[in-house]
Design a protein around this nucleic acid. Structure first.
Lengths: 218, 218
DNA sequence: ATTTAGTCTGTTGTATACAACAAAAGCAAA
DNA sequence: TTTGCTTTTGTTGTATACAACAGACTAAAT
């Protein structure tokens, strides 16, 4: 992390990181003063960062009251997966041919191995970059920005439900392999269809995880 | 406009309005000092507003250089209509039944009359609220926020190309009527299809307008 | 015990002074 | 004329003091 970036950027990333890691829990109240002490900067860059985070829906600034870390409800799962179900099959269908073959081959190799070849942390990271690299093929900044937000929300859910409890890893891996195989054949309609099935299964799994998890008071 | 809203909100809406009306032209450079004088407030609310506008893609803050009003290029038309083509048919297909019948009837009445019943300004306003009310049926804040941005960009194009030169009004009106008629029959697949056709025609018309307009140096 | 007026405390909103830096302008030397 | 250095100017970044306000708390009156 170069010392080049401005304090407002540092503050932004620091606070965002803590929200995503649920160090600042959903629903928690913050205030500028405590953040100022924690990050050792003045209020100005803090306020810049908070303004940006509010735009992204991670916090709500309540005048004269404080700063509320946005809650996560069951319905947010619906909202997140609605966006994913709209974007990701579309990306494959319309922009699949823009994805470089070497990238596809890389993921084919990866998902050909059993999921337990990787640590769960590694696999989540692979999962992320796989989906992101598909959506990035769209190259539409409006759509990408929205996707980035829901990506953050998805991460919060993952942390909140306990990151390492997904028993679906091998299944997920198979679904990934189906998608990539269709991509290799440049059969984008099939790829989009497999993606849709994968997302629906993933959505249901997320629901199950959240509902079975007592730590999440919503 | 109540005096209740904070200065940062007033600054945000004031600057946004001027950007959309191209009073601050695409590509123009601004600075905090001139905005401060123009709005008669200090830099703090100005900076809050600018931070928000940067998030929405209307400006770029260039450190130590100034504030650049985002340009509008031909490609932005593609980006805007890509989002509209993705969202609006989807809204009808999946959430058409959530639109209240009385709203549909209202638009049926409106679009049954010839477009020249209204002033062009009035018709643009009707057009806007028609499309917005369809997308709002989705009730997904992530998608709605994205739609709001591209809506602003669309308005800038309209202003830039000369607001009152659309010769397609009667055609547009007929396309609107086709969409609403399908809605009345609760035939959402047809409505989505008509919407797609309408958006494609509208996109082409926008292209023609921009390309034929000498005032837009891009 | 209950209400009510008033004070106090904590919070964000706002204004402004100063710092840091980049780019332009000026100027001298080759 | 060109080149390279120095100075100046203009801009946003940062820190901080003060204002405004909402809500909690206290204490007195009924």
């Amino acid at each position: 992390m170069a010392g080049k970036e401005s304090l407002k950027q540092k503050a932004y990333y620091a606070i965002k990181e803590k929200i995503i890691r649920c160090e600042y829990a959903p629903g928690a109240m913050l205030n500028e003063e405590s953040l100022r002490e924690e990050l050792h900067v003045s209020r100005t860059p803090i306020r810049d960062a908070l303004s940006r985070l509010e735009q992204e829906g991670l916090i709500s600034i309540l005048p004269k009251k404080g700063i509320e870390v946005s809650g996560l409800s069951i319905n947010d799962i619906n909202l997140i997966f609605e966006v994913r179900l709209l974007y990701e099959p579309y990306a494959l269908l319309k922009y699949g041919s823009k994805i470089k073959d070497e990238v596809i081959y890389k993921y084919y190799d990866t998902f050909s191995s059993p999921a337990h070849t990787f640590s769960e942390e590694e696999y989540y990271s692979l999962d992320d970059t796989f989906h992101v690299s598909i959506v990035e093929a769209i190259q539409n900044p409006y759509l990408l920005k929205t996707y980035d937000w829901i990506h953050n929300q998805n991460l919060r859910f993952r942390v909140l439900t306990g990151q390492f409890v997904d028993l679906r890893l091998e299944r997920t891996n198979q679904e990934h392999l189906k998608i990539v195989t269709a991509c290799l054949k440049h059969n984008w309609e099939l790829a989009a269809k497999e993606m849709e099935a994968h997302l629906l299964a993933s959505k249901n799994a997320t629901f199950d995880l959240v509902l079975s998890n007592k730590t999440t008071e919503m």
